[in-house]
Amino acid sequence: MNQHIFIVGNSFQVKSLAESLLNKKHPITIINNDMEFCKELSQIDNMTIVFGDGDKRYVLEDADIGKCDIMIAMTDNDADNLVTCLMAKKIFNVKKTISLVSDVKKTAFFYQMGIDSVVCTTSAITTIIEQQAIMDELATMIPIGEGRVRITKVKVSEDSPIVNKALFDIALPAQSIIACILRGQSSIIPRGSTKILADDMLLLVASIEDEIAAIELITGKSYD
């Protein structure tokens, strides 16, 4: 059963996110305090729009928050986002809360207050810029396990030192594995005898300690 998602906010990102989630068949309720934006959103089929401030208890009650599985607060005000998520979790027992923050220094505090997921726009943008600047081969870096392990997509170039080598001939660091190979339209779960080809996209799973060493081995470049 798809989860009912509530989104509080009044920006283009809210609309874009809601439409994406709708396409995945999630019921969506948007709470917004801009009447014109609400009118615009009301043109989208199968989306519930509630006019009001999402950090007000009576607005959440009017929105029938009892059916909410996930609350996403993404206004421009960090304090409002925190209040919205705390009310959803502490008063209405919403299973999962996600809050946007503009100041990376507030991230730890939000987690301490019980918010399940905290997304810092500044931190995310900075990370993307840094990755793009120094690691062009990396398409995605996803932290898991509280950041102790990361999943990274690494493109294999023609001059990579591992091109045409079988997996068991590649001396990857101990805390890293190539979990999947994306080759054209195919996804390959590799075995020891699987050969790495130029233009392969490798799904690397590695500890933060071994990640850079594994990437350097794959790309033949230093990222010191």
Rank of each mutant, 00 (worst) to 15 (best):
M141F: 08
T127D: 06
N77Y: 06
L17G: 08
A166T: 15
I30H: 05
C85G: 05
S42M: 06
D64I: 04
Y223S: 02
F168Q: 12
A139D: 11
C120E: 01
G147L: 02
T122K: 13
A108T: 08
D55T: 02
Y223Q: 04
L138H: 01
I170C: 09
I30C: 08
I212T: 14
I151T: 07
S102L: 12
Q131W: 00
T48E: 14
E137Y: 02
V50W: 05
S157K: 13
S123V: 00
T97H: 01
I212L: 11
A73E: 02
I28L: 14
A63Q: 05
D169Y: 05
D69T: 03
A166Y: 02
N23I: 00
E146P: 00
P143N: 04
E19G: 03
C38H: 03
C85K: 02
S117W: 03
A63M: 02
I65K: 08
K15I: 13
E40Y: 12
C38Y: 10
A79N: 10
C85E: 01
I177N: 11
L100V: 07
V50G: 04
Q132Y: 10
Q175F: 01
G54Q: 03
I218N: 08
A63Y: 00
K195C: 14
I144D: 00
G192V: 04
I72A: 09
D53N: 12
V119R: 07
I44Q: 10
T127R: 10
P190K: 09
A171D: 15
T84P: 03
L41T: 08
G52T: 09
P27H: 09
S117N: 11
I218W: 08
L197M: 15
V50S: 10
Q13G: 04
M71K: 05
G114M: 04
H26D: 08
K89Y: 01
K155W: 05
L182G: 00
I7P: 03
K155L: 15
G145V: 02
T126I: 12
F51Y: 14
D76G: 08
K90Q: 12
R191Y: 09
K67G: 11
I5F: 08
R148P: 01
I208V: 15
I178P: 13
S186Y: 07
E209G: 01
A79P: 00
R183W: 07
S123N: 09
